[in-house]
């Protein structure tokens, strides 16, 4: 009874500024395009490159091994290409956190690795057992410390260190493969063929989850990947840059924003205006990232000039985010309300 009354009341009285506009895009087609052209290729690349990483670790487990380090970077790039797609298969059994535990505000990763190595914990002997280890001791950031951290790369007996490198690499491949398998064997269909029995009931719901991935991906790049090392003007935090040990802080942002640009272009394919706005915004991001090439780990945030360049990159990413929330969201019919959007 109230439901109908409330609906009538809101149609009759709601101020035009708060009203939702009619949706004119083919939501189902956009979901299909995002899945086929962006999501599935991204997770396939993750599965393939992490297999190669595990194979490289089997061949050579020394932290200084060039083939191993190269395979690490290639696989990490693939993760950056999908790290914004945090729904469905990535969230089963903490797979995504098991691949990338960052930020690590309390230093859990070095503690977890230190404990494994000090105890020569036999949990690393078995793939399934290892998945019970804290997510802080697994994934790309654990492997990064095992390969690049001056202390942890040389910690403990060489044999155990080698076995741990191999196990962490194999575990990354295992989780990545499982994510890809789940996407291919069912989850993609749940998104592209929404139904009352599935996870998503309508095309709008499917589209909204992909839209949210774009928005939160941009947010994470700007606020965390750049915001964390920027800190504040008085207290810059260069040592908090993501993946600084392997020298890929900027590269992570570059690869991630390139992937987000790809998704943004797919989702804006039915609006020339929005698509053009995105092209401009992402071109600026790329240009500014190129300008930062000589500061791959954002060490420059300590100095005015270097800080300024990182802040500009952050502003450009925020501009792309503004296009997402102010233009794309309303056009797709997935915008949230005043309270729904606030989330607190």
């Amino acid at each position: 009874m109230l439901k109908s009354f409330a609906l009538v009341a809101s149609f009759a009285l709601v101020a035009p500024a708060f009203a939702q506009e009619a949706v004119r895009v083919d939501q189902g087609a956009l979901v299909e395009a995002a899945v086929a052209q962006h999501i599935l290729p991204g997770f396939e690349a993750l599965a393939t490159t992490t297999q190669a990483l595990s194979a490289a670790a089997e061949t050579e487990c020394s932290p200084t091994s060039e083939p191993l380090r190269a395979a690490f970077h290639t696989a990490f790039d693939a993760w950056m290409g999908v790290s914004h797609l945090r729904f469905g298969p990535t969230e089963v059994d903490e797979r995504a956190f098991g691949l990338a535990f960052w930020p690590d505000t309390k230093g859990f990763t070095p503690k977890a690795l230190g404990r494994l190595i000090a105890d020569e914990d036999p949990v690393i002997a078995d793939a399934t057992d290892f998945q019970t280890v804290s997510v802080a001791g697994r994934g790309f950031f654990a492997l990064e410390q095992l390969l690049y951290d001056p202390r942890i790369s040389t910690l403990g007996a060489a044999d155990y260190h080698c076995a741990l490198v191999r196990r962490v690499a194999a575990d990354i491949a295992l989780s990545s493969g499982a994510i890809h398998t789940d996407w291919v064997n069912g989850f993609a269909t749940l998104l592209t063929e929404p139904s009352e029995a599935g996870s998503y009931e309508t095309d709008a719901e499917s589209l909204q989850v992909i839209y949210k991935a774009l928005d939160s991906g941009l947010q994470f790049d700007a606020e965390v990947r750049l915001g964390r090392p920027l800190g504040s003007f008085d207290k810059p935090r260069p040592t908090r840059a993501e993946a600084r040990r392997s020298g890929r802080s900027l590269r992570n942002v570059t690869v991630s924003t390139a992937a987000l640009a790809e998704l943004a272009h797919i989702l804006s394919s039915e609006s020339d205006t929005i698509r053009a706005d995105y092209s401009t915004a992402f071109a600026l991001i790329q240009e500014q990232a190129t300008d930062l090439q000589n500061d791959p780990v954002f060490a420059g945030v300590k100095e005015v000039q270097g800080r300024f360049r990182v802040e500009i990159l952050q502003q450009y990413i925020n501009r792309a985010r503004g296009i997402t929330t102010l233009e794309l969201g309303p056009a797709l019919g997935v915008s949230a309300g005043f309270n729904a959007l606030d989330g607190d």
Binding site: F97, Q219, E223
Partner: peptide, 16 residues
């Protein structure tokens, strides 16, 4: 949920 104003409203400790 741990947050830090340098990072807006980003959630920093979901796994733990």
């Amino acid at each position: 949920i741990e947050t830090h104003p340098d990072m807006g409203r980003a959630k920093l400790n979901i796994p733990t």
